[in-house]
Design a protein around this nucleic acid. Sequence first.
DNA 1: TACGGATCATTGAAAAAGTCAACGATTGTT
DNA 2: AACAATCGTTGACTTTTTCAATGATCCGTA
Lengths: 152, 152
Amino acid sequence: MGPQSTEVETPRLAAAKIGSDVGLLLAKLHATGSLLNNKALADYGLRERSFSVLTLACSGLEPTQRELADFLSLDPSQVVSLVDDLEHRGLVKRAQGKQDRRAKIIVSTAEGRRIHNKARAALEVCEQTQLEGLSEDENLQLRALLKKALWG
Amino acid sequence: MGPQSTEVETPRLAAAKIGSDVGLLLAKLHATGSLLNNKALADYGLRERSFSVLTLACSGLEPTQRELADFLSLDPSQVVSLVDDLEHRGLVKRAQGKQDRRAKIIVSTAEGRRIHNKARAALEVCEQTQLEGLSEDENLQLRALLKKALWG
DNA sequence: TACGGATCATTGAAAAAGTCAACGATTGTT
DNA sequence: AACAATCGTTGACTTTTTCAATGATCCGTA
């Protein structure tokens, strides 16, 4: 996204009412975070989204592509592309759905889990950096609030 | 973004470790929020971004386009488009920078402020809906944490 | 003062991402 | 058995993002 400055920007405009808009706050934090996350994940050939898919594939929950699309707020066709890519690189596999033969279950390969562990470590360092303004407590609090906002 | 279901989805996958990834939580909340926000703003011919620009223009802070780009995490050329649109509709005006004649200061018109007030009211209802899972306290807490994460 | 490098807004082109309708295969329902 | 609905997939189309180039202006330095 836009400005790739690593330096801290002057928040002269943060004083505006918009600085309290949840929507904009989310957009901004997400934007700056994505930049860092994608940079950290690039070493493993991943981006935020492919990492998300890989994580779910490694979770043991055996998600279908439809579930991935719903959960990640993506169009089903986008999931096809993401899974295609990961599958070509041997990180995940498509397996036939158990109850429903239309559905495809996405599961990780051993190599996929290996990459995922490394990428996750890098990402956690990254998140630490991004939220360094928050104390450990606040960090947990933020996660809890975001989860609650999403799923009650 | 992806699925436009208004119904609450089953968070079967929220159990995965990814459900604690700040990056993904932000992405998801932002995605679902954007959908609602843009729907609410459509009545006024605005979207999240043009609303953000309009808000800053109405703030009295007299932002330059460069500042808008930095603050909103946008490419400068995207700001040009957004301001072009708002200006053609008579909601903002470009004024010459005071110290720097290269810069253009974006200020709102009376009509712009009128629209902005209406849109803001609609948006607040929208945010209320989006965060209905949170108590009033938690709502404030979330805003505070997001702000702190962004600007310390 | 004049030069040189940097920054501002702007343009336009190229790449990426998102949206959407259609399809075959399969499911569940009547 | 017939029907509508759902899953993954494809391809077309639109929107968004990214990036390099440009003229105008600013700033530091000789």
